[in-house]
């Protein structure tokens, strides 16, 4: 399936889904007016990609702000990745800005629920 590249805006993240290279990255901020409209097709594309391959996957999240609706959609994406991780390696590099409690908490929620994923938490300075 084709790679997905969407440049970031002030309220939507940069989407760099290189399915051909088994590398998926989301970075930036996410507070679109309708998070479901933005993320649902992306989550569906990732799910379709994972169903069609068994290669190890490397994922990176470098998210600096998420509104509540985007947080929920990203958490759902985590669920999709975790399900795939039961049958092949899924690594997630989860970047957190120091003192960003909200993203830190999301990371903690991921770790609690998504035990199949190989996490790497990376703290960066502002």
């Amino acid at each position: 399936m084709s790679d997905i590249h969407i440049p970031g805006t002030r309220q939507t993240p940069t989407v760099d889904f290189r399915f051909s290279e088994h590398f998926l990255k989301l970075s930036g901020e996410a507070y679109p007016e309708n998070a479901v409209t933005f993320f649902e097709p992306l989550n569906a594309a990732v799910e379709a990609y994972l169903a069609a391959s068994s290669e190890p996957v490397n994922v990176e999240f470098d998210l600096r702000y998420l509104n509540s609706a985007a947080t929920k959609m990203i958490f759902k994406l985590g669920g999709i990745l975790n399900k795939a991780a039961e049958h092949r390696s899924v690594s997630l590099r989860f970047v957190v800005v120091e003192d960003d409690e909200m993203v830190q908490d999301l990371g903690a929620d991921f770790q609690t629920d998504y035990s199949w994923i190989n996490f790497q938490f990376v703290e960066v300075a502002l």
């Binding site: 479901v36 509104n67 509540s68 609706a69 947080t71 929920k72 958490f75 929620d109 629920d113």
Partner: peptide, 23 residues
């Protein structure tokens, strides 16, 4: 909040998943 984050559907009438006020 943690429970609502994990809930499959948002509540009726919600446009974002139902965790805005909890956030």
């Amino acid at each position: 909040y943690r429970t609502a984050l994990r809930a499959e559907e948002g509540e009726a009438g919600s446009k974002g998943g139902g965790i805005g006020l909890l956030t």
